[in-house]
Design a protein around this nucleic acid. Structure first.
Length: 580
RNA sequence: CGGGGCGUGGCGCAGCUUGGUAGCGCGCUUGCUUUGGGAGCAAGAAGUCGCAGGUUCAAAUCCUGUCGCCCCGACCA
């Protein structure tokens, strides 16, 4: 492959685009890889298309290697497929809907579980056919409430999604492990720095789920990682270690205290320390947060109180994950008005049973722990409120915020907390979709076997952005070799014979199998060519310039930043060696 | 949906307070010079000032409405 800058469809920009915030977005636009068409919708220019193709190719190779078979479904889908699983309505505003000339409903596919399930059902019917894994690399459409960060979160994006179909749980586990290994190979080849973290498996019976997160400051997901062992989890999936229960007998008796004007934890702590001779911190208080939880299936809304140590906030994302598919919402003034028993700012768990309100606590609130909490009267709190004696929770819930330094649930060491971008998700789905579609195989005994499925995704276009996000410097992009649009960028600085020599070198390298981009532009100053080469991010740069008269050229490694002068006659060999 | 900001040649921006018929940088075209760090000089092409209505002799500028976009929070590859 030989690309010439003189004819390449490319225009680099000197300034960052005004609408870009994150590095990948700025650089991909400046370097002429992508252009915005509409919010969350981008066009790929030649160099960008090459990178996207390289990423796609690597993913495809690894999927094929693990035995996946590629298919392709339409993006334009009739409503029926999503009707059976209830997702036509469940997906809500996130789906792009349209109608044909006859008024029939269609949608642009946001995901394809239904189609895969249906296809397998239509073709396979015997246990001898299984297991099977199918995948596709396809454009998905989701009408995101807020697309952002360029192609990191678009409304149109390329995704690799695959599904495994197995006869039993062991088979599903094997398929899951195969995908896990394939993903590790894939992301390694893509040159992405990533972490495999535990994820929420959801309330649909899935037994295991892991996410591949690329750590980046601009990431939207929060995850924890242990510094000593290899535990890592999405913040939503972090398990809080509970301390051992304590004896109740020797606990001091419950004491109600006057605490006027102390509706917040902060005001409470300073008041009781000053006026009641206590010396407590926020961690000694029990904060009770009221939420209302809507359950989509039943259409019912339940009032629920969550108890967490007073030094921690309730993390709404964790709460949502813990209550899923229930949808929690903040308890508002009107809701308090309807529940006079709940005294805002002074709620204590002692009265909840009487009120018939369910009470779930943080796992740290174990039997025998003693708390300062509300007395269910305005202006009063209670001290020495002991779990198991003065109140009995209805269960525990993972809703409190996770903080750096919290103990690892596996080994007890301190957890670190970071942000990452989700680039892959593997998930043991179980039988939800097989149940909905009635996907069975006929077993050897003549009885039907309900198929169990796994679902596995990679954000393909997102991976391009993630690579750019992780792999750049102050000058521009720095592509990992396998995804770079070319292996070598040969710059012929101004003078005629330098451009000519650059073209000769380019031709030789091309004939020896290198993918070459050569800057053969006339009338363009060396500075411009250097800047463009650095911005475009091809891993090896060869400058054919002022050293040419002495028969030397300059070899630059974009990754290490090393520069060296080498004889022109050795240039081709050196570049090929760098590629190996 | 809640909060913040912005709509002016292809890109980045000024002009708006105090109305007078549009300007700067980059990019683009032509010529000459220049050629190792986003060159110089000269001459050019290119803009419904988001849209609609209003006020006015006159609106990018003032008023009203409207549309769109970006950023921060609730969803997800």
């Amino acid at each position: 492959m030989l690309l010439r800058m003189s004819s390449l469809f490319l225009r680099t920009l000197r300034d960052d685009p005004a609408d870009a915030e994150v590095p990948s977005h700025k650089l991909l636009v400046r370097a002429g890889y992508v252009r915005r068409v509409a919010p969350g919708i981008y066009s790929w220019l030649p160099l960008g298309k090459m990178v996207l193709e390289n990423v796609t190719r690597i993913i495809r190779e690894e999927m094929n290697r693990m035995g996946g078979q590629e298919v392709l479904f339409p993006a334009l889908l009739p409503r029926e497929f999503y009707e059976a699983t209830g997702r036509w309505t469940e997906y809500g505003d996130n789906i792009f809907r349209l109608q044909d000339r006859k008024g029939a409903d269609y949608l642009l596919g946001p995901t394809h579980e239904e189609l895969f399930t249906d296809m397998v059902k239509g073709e396979y019917s015997s246990y001898k056919d299984y297991p099977v894994t199918l995948y596709q690399i396809q454009t998905k459409y989701r009408d995101e409430a807020r697309p952002r960060a360029g192609i990191l979160r678009g409304r149109e994006f390329v995704m690799k999604d695959s599904y495994s179909f197995d006869l039993d749980d062991d088979g599903l586990k094997r398929s899951y492990e195969q995908h896990r290994e394939a993903y590790i190979r894939t992301f390694d080849r893509l040159g992405i720095d990533y972490k495999v973290v535990f994820a929420m498996s959801g309330a649909m019976g899935g037994s295991a789920s892991e996410e591949f997160l690329a750590p980046t400051p601009t990431g939207e997901d929060t995850f924890v990682a242990c510094r000593s062992c290899d535990y890592a989890a999405n913040a939503e999936a972090v398990v809080t270690s509970a301390p051992a229960a304590r004896a109740i007998d020797d606990a001091a008796p419950l004491q109600v205290l006057d605490t006027p004007d102390t509706p917040t934890i902060e005001s409470l702590v300073s008041y009781v320390n000053e006026h009641h001779g206590l010396s407590i911190t926020a961690a000694d208080t029990l904060k009770n947060v009221v939420v209302k939880v809507f359950t989509p299936g039943s259409g019912k809304t339940e009032t629920l109180v969550i108890g967490v140590p007073g030094d921690r906030e309730v993390d709404f994302k964790r709460l949502e994950a813990a209550l899923s598919p229930g949808e929690p919402a903040i308890f508002e003034a009107a809701d308090f008005a309807a529940h006079p028993g709940l005294v805002r700012g002074y709620i204590g768990p002692q009265a909840l049973r009487e009120l018939g309100i369910r009470y779930l606590v943080d796992p740290r609130v174990v039997t025998g722990t003693s708390w300062v909490t509300g007395a269910n009267e305005a202006g009063r709190h209670a001290a020495n409120v002991v779990a198991g004696r003065d109140f009995t929770p209805d269960g525990t819930i993972e809703a409190a915020e996770v903080r750096a330094g919290d103990p690892c649930p596996r080994c007890g060491s301190a957890l670190s907390i970071d942000r990452g971008i989700e680039i892959g998700h593997i998930f043991q789905l179980g039988r939800k979709y097989a149940d909905a579609a009635g996907l069975d195989a006929l077993g050897p005994d003549g009885k039907p076997i309900r198929i169990t499925m796994g679902s596995y995704g990679i954000g393909v276009s997102r991976a391009v952005a993630v690579i750019a996000e992780q792999s750049h410097d102050s000058l521009g992009l720095v592509w990992p070799r396998e995804v770079a649009p070319a292996d070598v960028h040969i710059v012929g600085t101004g003078k005629e014979n330098q451009v000519e020599a650059a073209l000769e070198l380019a031709t030789e390298l091309e004939s020896r199998g290198a993918r070459v981009l050569v800057d053969d532009r006339a009338q363009v100053s060396p500075g411009v060519k250097f800047k463009d080469a650095e911005l475009l991010g091809i891993p090896t740069i060869v400058v054919v310039g002022r050293g040419l008269s002495q028969g030397v050229v300059e070899l630059r490694d974009r990754v290490s930043g090393e520069k060296s002068e080498i004889p022109l006659v050795e240039a081709a060999d050196r570049v090929l060696a760098a590629m190996a």
